[in-house]
C-alpha cells in the first residue's frame, strides 16, 4: 500500500494572530504542522500498520516547512518531500491542488492520498477535493473510518446528518477527521530519525508544473471588530435568586 499524506505548515493554534500593516502576523509563536493534517498522517500510519507499505509526507511551502515534514517523519512516516519554489508565493487553493497533483504524479502516484479536512490558516477546506478533481480520482471527504478490501476502499463519512458509508476503487483521495483517532506523539526514535533525515526539495520545474496566476486574491486584511458589550455580572444569595434575575434579563432582551 502506497500512501501519501499531504500536510501544511501553519502558525500554532494558540498564536495571537492579527492583521498588521496589511500583513498577517503571529509574533514569536511557533509554526507547526496543521493540526488537522495530523489526522491525515495518523490515518496513513494506521493503514500502513494494517496493510504494509509506505507513507510519504508531502508539503508545498517555504523551506521552513521542512519542520512540519519532520513532525510527520517523527510520527512514523517513511519519507518526506517538500515542493518549494519562489514562484509559489500567491497560491490559491486551485493552484495548490495543481502543484500537489503534479508532485503526487512525480512521486509515482499512490493508492490513497490523505488530507486533513481544512487548514488553520486559510481554512477554506477545498484543496483535497480540488486535488482529487485535478487527478481525476474519487473523493472521499470527512472520513472517520477506513476499510481496505482488495483494490477498493470503504469509508464512513462523518457529516452533519450522520454517517454515510461510501466505497470507491483505489487510487482515491481522502480527507480525514477526528474520528480516525488521536494523532500519535512522535517517539524518541522517531524524533532521532527525523532530525537526521534529508528532505528532498523539488522546484516547480522538478514536478513539471508552472505557477498559474491565482484566481482568488486578497484585497484587504482586517482585525475583527472588538466586542463593545460590557458584561453585566448577575449576583445573588442563592442559585435560585441568580437564576431568577438572569431569566428576567434574558427574557427582557426578547431574543427568544
Amino acid at each position: 500500500m502506497k500512501i501519501i499524506a499531504c500536510i501544511k505548515q501553519v502558525p500554532d493554534s494558540e498564536a495571537k494572530v492579527k492583521a498588521e500593516d496589511g500583513k498577517v502576523t503571529w509574533g514569536d509563536a511557533p509554526l507547526v504542522i496543521n493540526p488537522f493534517d495530523e489526522y491525515a498522517v495518523e490515518g496513513a500510519l494506521q493503514q500502513r500498520e494494517a496493510l504494509g507499505g509506505t507513507v510519504t509526507a508531502l508539503c508545498v511551502g517555504p523551506e521552513s516547512a521542512k519542520e512540519a515534514l519532520k513532525h510527520a517523519l517523527a510520527m512514523g512516516a517513511d519519507e518526506a518531500v517538500l515542493v518549494s519554489d519562489p514562484a509559489l508565493t500567491d497560491l490559491d487553493t486551485v493552484g495548490a491542488a495543481r502543484v500537489l497533483a503534479a508532485a503526487i504524479q512525480k512521486i509515482g502516484g499512490a493508492d490513497m492520498v490523505m488530507f486533513g479536512r481544512q487548514t488553520l490558516d486559510n481554512g477554506a477546506g477545498l484543496t483535497a477535493a480540488q486535488t482529487a478533481r485535478v487527478l481525476g480520482l474519487p473523493m472521499l471527504g470527512f472520513v472517520g473510518q477506513i476499510k481496505v478490501e482488495g483494490d477498493s476502499v470503504t469509508v464512513d463519512r462523518v457529516t452533519e446528518e450522520g454517517r454515510q458509508t461510501v466505497s470507491a476503487k483505489m487510487p482515491a483521495v481522502l480527507s480525514l477527521v477526528q474520528s480516525i483517532g488521536e494523532p500519535r506523539y512522535p517517539s524518541f526514535m522517531g524524533i532521532r530519525k527525523a532530525s537526521k533525515a534529508t528532505i528532498p526539495v523539488w522546484s516547480l520545474a522538478d514536478v513539471g508544473a508552472t505557477a498559474s496566476a491565482p484566481v482568488v486574491t486578497r484585497v484587504e486584511l482586517m482585525n475583527p471588530p472588538v466586542s463593545e458589550a460590557k458584561v453585566e455580572m448577575i449576583t445573588g444569595e442563592t442559585p435560585a435568586e441568580i437564576a431568577d434575575k438572569l431569566a428576567d434579563k434574558i427574557l427582557a432582551e426578547k431574543v427568544l
Binding site: 498577517v24 486584511l221 482585525n223
Partner: peptide
Amino acid sequence: PIYEGKVLEKTVCS
C-alpha cells in the same frame, strides 16, 4: 474569516 476567525480578509475572485 481566516486563521480561525482571528483575522478577516476581503477577497475577490477573477
